[in-house]
Amino acid sequence: MENVPAPLWIAACAHRLQQQWHTVDPLELEDVARDLWRDERLRTLSPEAAAVEWLRPITE
């Protein structure tokens, strides 16, 4: 989603990751989300979809 500013995309992605991992420090999840944003393929997805895609091996 190229029209979403990076800080907003990262925050939304971190929020979605928090739904999966309630006990992980939110700042760590924000770091993970930032790494996901750096992945060109994941960055083209919505933040929620990118988180779900990244979590797929864990949740299957």
Rank of each mutant, 00 (worst) to 15 (best):
M1N: 13
M1C: 11
E2G: 11
E2K: 11
E2R: 15
N3D: 09
N3C: 05
N3K: 14
N3W: 08
V4G: 03
V4M: 10
P5Q: 06
P5D: 06
P5E: 07
P5W: 04
P5N: 02
P7W: 01
L8G: 03
L8Y: 05
W9D: 00
W9F: 02
W9N: 03
W9A: 00
I10L: 09
I10A: 03
I10P: 07
A11E: 15
A12C: 03
A12V: 01
A12N: 07
C13M: 00
C13I: 04
A14N: 02
A14I: 01
H15A: 11
H15N: 11
R16K: 07
R16C: 01
L17V: 02
L17K: 03
Q18D: 03
Q18L: 09
Q18M: 10
Q19F: 09
Q19V: 03
Q20W: 12
Q20C: 08
Q20A: 11
Q20P: 12
W21K: 05
W21C: 02
T23K: 14
T23W: 15
T23S: 15
V24L: 08
V24F: 05
V24E: 13
D25L: 05
D25Q: 04
D25V: 04
P26G: 00
L27V: 13
E28D: 13
E28P: 08
E28I: 13
L29F: 04
L29N: 00
D31T: 10
D31A: 09
V32A: 13
A33I: 06
R34I: 00
D35R: 15
L36I: 05
L36G: 04
L36M: 15
L36S: 00
W37T: 01
W37I: 01
W37M: 03
R38P: 05
R38Y: 07
D39R: 03
E40K: 14
E40P: 12
E40R: 15
R41H: 10
L42M: 10
L42Y: 06
L42K: 03
R43H: 12
R43L: 10
R43Q: 14
T44N: 13
L45K: 14
L45Y: 13
S46N: 09
S46D: 07
S46Q: 07
S46P: 06
E48Y: 08
E48W: 04
A49T: 07
A49S: 07
A50E: 04
A51D: 03
A51E: 01
V52A: 08
V52L: 05
V52D: 12
V52C: 01
E53I: 01
E53F: 02
W54F: 14
W54I: 01
W54M: 05
L55T: 11
R56M: 11
R56E: 14
R56Y: 13
R56I: 07
P57Q: 07
I58E: 05
T59A: 08
T59W: 14
E60S: 04
E60T: 12
E60Y: 10
